[in-house]
């Protein structure tokens, strides 16, 4: 059904789209205000941060790597952006973006030059960037300058409806999609993830390609940090805890394999949206007053949902399904 998104990628991404559709249908029938302009705006404005880091994470995971530092880098960038806010968005945004890219560049250096596995390299950055954010912010929120145009950036709506954060996420989404489907870089990312040995022997510049992906991932986290600071009116050194795991979850829900070599940008978007929707629905449910779930329970439910989608998308889940329907399992000879 959604095959045109993933020509040749040979992925099972239908599950995540169907889940998104079902959840949206369910919620729009159950809650009056679910499809209201306000809810849709708030939803995407908030989730644009998660979409951004999930997109960056998707590219990294497609190379067979992982970037555990994005949550901390969001926090660090938000602090830097808050400090730069008196100079206006035109300075604060590049400052946050460059902070993220710098963190990504350090990751890239450690991974490609010092030959440290991505898990460890980015774990170190996760700790380092968090510490750096706390040091810079002196362990408290850093208020943004309310007189500059920085706060306006968080509040203004393009054409009166679309938040700037959403525009940024949309641009990155389209750019990454084009990169993956149409460019040498995208092809190289998948080649490295699929078979690093073969990639080297085909003249693929492995280190350069890996470096670019980690810098892009860091850049995404940097943009998310700018959005965070402008949206909350403060640089938040303690925000972004566990966000890297949400990003990984979005990528996995989107059908991208953690082993690398395959993956889909649109399905990653769908994965991030799906995880956000569950959160959104739980808020509505609490708002109706029938049940009251604490944030802790929300996390449990999100975890369960993640597992269900992933199992449905894996081949095992598929065959589980088919067997229930009374058909023999298909094996490949």
């Amino acid at each position: 059904m959604f095959g045109f998104f993933d020509r040749s990628r040979d992925l099972r991404t239908e599950g995540v789209w169907i889940a998104v559709i079902i959840v949206v249908l369910f919620a729009s029938l159950r809650y009056d205000n679910f499809l209201s302009l306000y809810n849709v705006q708030t939803f995407f404005a908030y989730n644009s941060m998660f979409i951004l880091i999930a997109l960056g994470m998707a590219l990294v995971i497609m190379t067979g790597g992982i970037d555990l530092s994005v949550g901390s880098v969001v926090a660090l960038s938000s602090v830097v952006a808050a400090y730069a806010s008196p100079y206006g968005i035109q300075v604060a945004l590049p400052a946050g973006l460059l902070t993220g890219m710098a963190a990504g560049a350090i990751n890239a250096f450690v991974i490609t030059r010092m030959r440290i596995v991505p898990f460890i390299a980015t774990l170190a950055m996760m700790l380092g960037a968090r510490g750096m954010a706390l040091v810079l912010a002196d362990n408290k929120s850093v208020s943004v300058d309310w007189t500059s145009n920085f706060t306006k950036f968080g509040l203004t709506r393009v054409f009166g409806v679309i938040p700037w954060a959403v525009i940024i996420a949309a641009i990155v989404f389209i750019a990454f999609w084009v990169i993956l489907e149409k460019t040498t870089l995208g092809r190289r990312i998948l080649t490295i993830g699929g078979n690093p040995e073969a990639a080297k022997l085909m003249g693929v510049p492995v280190n350069r390609t890996l470096a670019i992906t980690y810098v892009l991932s860091g850049g995404c986290a940097g943009l998310a940090g700018v959005i965070l600071a402008s949206g909350f009116g403060a640089g938040q050194p303690l925000e972004g805890l566990g966000w890297e795991l949400s990003a990984i979850a979005s990528v996995v829900v989107g059908g991208t394999l953690l082993t690398g070599g395959v993956g889909s940008i649109p399905a990653t978007l769908a994965g991030a949206v799906l995880l956000g929707l569950i959160f959104n629905i739980l808020n509505f449910e609490n708002g109706q007053g029938q049940i009251s779930l604490s944030a802790y329970w929300q996390s449990v439910i999100r975890g369960a949902f993640l597992l269900i989608v992933v199992v449905l998308q894996s081949n095992k889940g598929g065959s589980l399904f088919r067997r229930k329907a009374g058909q023999p399992t298909a094996e490949k000879p």
Binding site: V204, L257, G261
Partner: peptide
Amino acid sequence: EGIIPGLSIRENLTL
């Protein structure tokens, strides 16, 4: 050292 298993024939061929 040869094929990139997740990629299509087209993508493998033009690498």
